[in-house]
Amino acid sequence: MFDIDSYHKADTVDEAIALLSKNPDAVPIAGGTDVLVRLHGHNPDYRHLVDIHDVAELKNITMEPDGTIVIGSGVNFTDLAQSAIVSTNIPVLAEGGSSIGGPQVRNVATIGGNISNGAPSADAAPPLLVLNAHIELKGPEGFRRLPLHDFYQGPGQVDRKSGEIMTCLRIGSTDYKGWSGHYYKYAMRGAMDIATIGCAAACKIDGGRVAGIRLAFGVAGPTPLRCWRTEEKAQGSVADQTLLDLVSDSVLGDLRPRDSWRASKDFREQIITTLSERVLKEALNRNGVSIP
């Protein structure tokens, strides 16, 4: 039996916001694959719950008339990967989502929970970062939107104000039309594992030259990180081996991997440089540029 002290179930977002405001100690529980693990470990921070598991309005994936893709925070990773909107327009996110845990975990774990827990290893994060995703939150004061990279504040810390619920993730059409991407999860096992390094790349090519490159890593710093400086340096380059070399030479400058019992810093750096080249190469390949 889980060590829960109070429990309230919400059927709508507004109800959830009201319940959270009334119970300032309470945290939302969506899929519970994170919250319940912490309760199994008797973590006192999760003893008061507002249950948003069955809030239907958080479970939709839609495309707005301007092409913006809107993914409800309560969408689980199985539904995400099976969504036609996702798999045709932003397959890189499906790749990230499909690398999570195992089938049973993906059947319940939500994308909102994956981002909200602030884990540096969240497999949805690097793909969402290279898609320039924005977060939408709703609280007692109404809606607010911010870029995903601003939502992350530190390890396990996100910019969620009290009473707020993440409602959806938004990806604008200019951030995926003409772009191709790839996500690779480097882990110790082929499934049921936390990434040692997660790497997402996206690119847009114009006449053989880089019109845009985006690179993001998980577990290469306190939060999932974009490689801003590298991306800038690569802008306008010819898409060939020199570009890959430039990226792999520069990428560590954007990141802050560290030593832990799971892996040493120099090992992570080895994987980061290798992946930056290989993952970008595959993203380019998907954009019709094949580098031997």
Binding site: K9, G32, L36, V37, D51, Q104, N107, V108
Partner: peptide, 13 residues
């Protein structure tokens, strides 16, 4: 018909 780990799933759901 969807497989779920029942240990990590609240019974109320």
């Amino acid at each position: 018909d969807v497989a779920v780990d029942s240990c990590l799933y609240l019974a109320v759901w």
